[in-house]
Structures are given as structure tokens and as C-alpha cells.
Amino acid sequence: MPELNFCILIGAVLFVSGVVCMATKRNAIGVLMGVELVLNAANLNFVAFARYTALGLDGQILSLFVIVLAAAEAAVALAIALNFYNNHLTIDVDRADDLHG
């Protein structure tokens, strides 16, 4: 199935980009964007498998849940980032070492 393989290729590129974004960015908002990319890769695979295999409508419903949970995750993570910025006056995640022993 070439179409499914194309979708898997795009999803893999999105996933790896998100993981690299999470690993290399020092801005907390950048890390959040990496998380969004990873969730989007999962969504793309869900919808592609819903289209081309017997997964059917379930894949689309799961992708809807993923979208809602990603929105919730972004809201909470952004609140935590704002709180961190209020306390430290920076958004650099390397400076968040208050808990190291």
C-alpha cells in the first residue's frame, strides 16, 4: 500500500522532528512545540490506518481524543511554564535545577 507507506513516512519524520525538538530546545515553549509535533505524528498514523486498514472509524475517534488531550496538556504545561517564568525570570529549562541534590 504505497499511500499508507507515504503516511507512515510523513509520520516518522514528524515524530523524529518532535523528539529532536524536545531534546535540543532550551526554551520551554520549544519543548512544548516538540510535544505537539509528536502527538500530531500519532494522529496522522491513526487517521491513515483508519483510512487504509480495517481499523475504520475507531482510529478517527482516537485521534479526536488525542487532539483534546493535547489541548489540555498544552494549557497545563503553559501554566507551569508561566509560573516558572514568574519565579525565575527566565524560560530556559536548563535553569530549572532547584530540585537537584
Binding site: I29, A70, A71, L78, L82, Y85
Partner: peptide, 24 residues
């Protein structure tokens, strides 16, 4: 799902992220 992606992700989550960029 495409419409929800546009509405919630691009219209909601990204605007939230951009507000985060501006506030920090």
C-alpha cells in the same frame, strides 16, 4: 478530524502557545 485539527489545534492550542511566547 481535519476540521477539529484546524479549529482546536491551529486555532486554539497554537494561539495559546503564541501567548506563552509573548508572555515569557
Amino acid at each position: 478530524v481535519g476540521a477539529v485539527q484546524l479549529l482546536v489545534y491551529v486555532g486554539g492550542t497554537l494561539v495559546l502557545l503564541i501567548f506563552g511566547v509573548m508572555l515569557t
